[in-house]
């Protein structure tokens, strides 16, 4: 019977690529929001550029940390 369960059960290959995809979605959205909001803020108040750059950096650092751990999890935690 060709239902959704059968089709999903037949998926083969490296499941790590799915993990990569999932690990990329969140940080991509996160970095997009962080950078977009920083541009918006600097356009409104250019004199705050220095402080906003540092805050943008820490936002990017936190979002990319999740991506690093997410991508590495599959490859390093399976035999």
């Amino acid at each position: 019977m060709d239902n959704a369960t059968t089709i999903f059960a037949e998926i083969s290959g490296n499941i790590g690529t799915v993990g990569y995809g999932l690990a990329a979605i969140g940080p991509a959205i996160g970095v997009g929001i962080v950078v977009g909001k920083t541009i918006e803020s600097v356009a409104r108040q250019p004199e705050l550029q220095g402080r906003l750059t540092v805050l943008m950096y820490i936002g990017i650092a936190f979002t990319e940390a999740l991506a690093f751990i997410g991508i590495a999890t599959y490859f390093f935690m399976t035999a």
Binding site: E47, L48, Q49, R51, V54, I58
Partner: peptide, 14 residues
């Protein structure tokens, strides 16, 4: 970043 003393405005206004 918490311990750095960064001025709120670090450039001359245009």
């Amino acid at each position: 970043i918490m311990t750095s003393r960064q001025p709120t405005i670090d450039s001359d206004a245009d």
